[in-house]
Amino acid sequence: MILIQLVNGLMEGMTLFLIASGLTLIFGVTRIINFAHGSLFMLGAFVTYELVPLIGPGTLWGFFAAVLLAGLAVSLLGMLFEMLALRRIYGADGLMQLIVTVALVLILRDVVRMIWGPNSLSVPMPDRLMGALQIGDSYFPLFPIAVFLAGLVVVVAMIWVIYFTRAGILLRAGTDDRGMVALCGVNERLIFTAVFAAGAFLAGLAGGLAAPYGEVNHLLDTTVIVSAFIVCVIGGLGNLYGALAGALLVGLTKAIGVMYFPRLSMVLIFLIMALILIARSMGRQGGTAR
């Protein structure tokens, strides 16, 4: 039982990481907290719901192709949003930017309700991932393992892009010193748009991957964004590895905590977060973003 929850926790941790990493990347470059990141996750799940029956219901490649396409679709939307709305107010008060993303949350929630209705939908799992993997005497459900591995592939790809490509160099340079990058003759706006698109892609991807393992409804946005925020606070905003550690910690705590304190697993996570915050803010000026 504990092993199954372990696998579930790893899967949840991985999805959380995909969301939180997008949040962190966007914050690192644009200094904007994208409150709509949970909504993008939700949209990814709904688009996957639409695409799976079209591409190949039940098949492995059909599912992953649908998830990939959903990620791209969400990424496109994120890009549009950045270009049409966020770009106009980069100079304004940080709160205004936050409120603009809150506006997107409201809009997307109603749009989703208009198109897909208020009831929960379910996305079929690929047939081949239905069963369980037997190791010794214990069985592990296949689907969470597959999602975890797929997430791992994304993580490796992300690290490769960030550390070994020109786009990654620009991203890191933009995080360190925006003005200097602009002075070097790089189109700063392009970086912003690209980062936003990438973050939205990750959120959409996560939504698609997680879709078959739970209910897909219009309330996903807020539950997801709160968890992602907790991950970011634990890991430190702008810190990718911190986000990974934080996401796995939250995922595992949630999954295993449910067994012992079924009603208070969120409180447990909160306590962990509070302890980490107190421990960290002893030394440095408490948690001011770098």
Binding site: I33, F229, G286, G287, T288
Partner: peptide
């Protein structure tokens, strides 16, 4: 103990 965006979160 925290400021700005961390405070909000």
């Amino acid at each position: 103990r925290l400021t700005e965006i961390y405070f909000a979160m």
